[in-house]
Design a protein around this nucleic acid. Sequence first.
DNA 1: TTCCTCAATCTTGTATGGTAGATGCCTGAC
DNA 2: GTCAGGCATCTACCATACAAGATTGAGGAA
Lengths: 224, 224
Amino acid sequence: MTSVLDIPEETMSLRVVGALRDEIVSMALKPGDVISESDIAARYGVSRQPVREAFIRLAQQGLLLIRPKRATVVKKISPEGVRQSRFIRESIEVEVVRRVAGNPGADAAAILDELIADQERASSAADSRRFHQLDELFHRTLARLAGVEYAWQLIDDHKMQLDRVRFMTLGVSSAQVAIGEHKIIAAKIANGDVAGAEAAMRAHLGRAEILLTQTINDFPDYFE
Amino acid sequence: MTSVLDIPEETMSLRVVGALRDEIVSMALKPGDVISESDIAARYGVSRQPVREAFIRLAQQGLLLIRPKRATVVKKISPEGVRQSRFIRESIEVEVVRRVAGNPGADAAAILDELIADQERASSAADSRRFHQLDELFHRTLARLAGVEYAWQLIDDHKMQLDRVRFMTLGVSSAQVAIGEHKIIAAKIANGDVAGAEAAMRAHLGRAEILLTQTINDFPDYFE
DNA sequence: TTCCTCAATCTTGTATGGTAGATGCCTGAC
DNA sequence: GTCAGGCATCTACCATACAAGATTGAGGAA
């Protein structure tokens, strides 16, 4: 049995944050679920205080909704919020590939090719967890190559909302498609084709658009 | 004498958040200043608990740095952070004007012209506070016209860092320049000139670039 | 049966005390 | 004079107790 104590963090509060975030993003705690400081405190064997502070952090990240004197609930997913998180992500990532394609470092192509090769290996091994990690790393690396890795943290914050949706659509295997799109993006960058890289990134990010309406139909209770 | 009690918020904790945020953004609390839960609690006449929770919120917003068991300090401004906040803002606002220029609503031009007229009145009256409010409203309105007002909240969060810098450069009167640039943006949008509107927005946002290095020279202690 | 009232019992918000870790000064040895 | 060690004192962290608003359901009146 893993305990919250196993998570190596500075403070109890941060451990609870990590544990709860995982539970929410992985949909173990479902949108609409009501939780209370006392419950979580008992579950993790700590007092209400660190749990309360964890709630505050998670509420600021948009995962919880604290209703004063009433209760705290796992926030339902806002379709509009998802849409705008995508907008934010697309805005930034488009600007990122522009910069990278316009001024690619000497080793950019090699780094990206290596990541794509890793992804193909993970895909062959059907290691979906690692595949997703590498997918995220691909985009993060682009941000790093553009010199704005900090901006990726911003996307990362908002990506949690998107991840919850993604978690509901597992089995919709699109690994091969994603790898192909990554290859196109990397190729355009290697050629210094700014407009082409931008278009490829828009196509890559836009693909998920269709899944949202489908997911809302399948799990209407999880959305606002 | 205004008290923290005057701020109309649900909880004490949120009132303290508002009060401290104002003090920090207005540079009444300066980067590097050391504060403690006890001090602030005594100053505002509340217990340490709500202050502590306020600290957590402000730390997540990047205004405070909590050093466990040591102290809490007003975070120094990171030039790199400012640079990337600008990158984020430019990424999103460029995408916004593209959308608006590509598909301007019937009344977009009239709304923007009205805002610009207000700004000219504020500028004539030398009401810099209102001018700044209107400047912000102009950009926020663009986001609303693009259907992504939510995304503006994101910019707003990161804008606090930029505002601290801006507060140090008061007196550098550039109101007329800003109004002129707003006029150009509005005109390009009215003409449906997507590329022109994008270029105008980039020029508008890029203008502040020079001020940062100057400000770092003037107030080196406030930067990392 | 329906609706109103009210109290038991939830919830989060606030106050306070104690704990552990980090800092810095102060003292004493060399 | 210099440096090392210890202790006073600061900090944020956590636990506990109390306060107050909100919900819910039972019970009585119409």
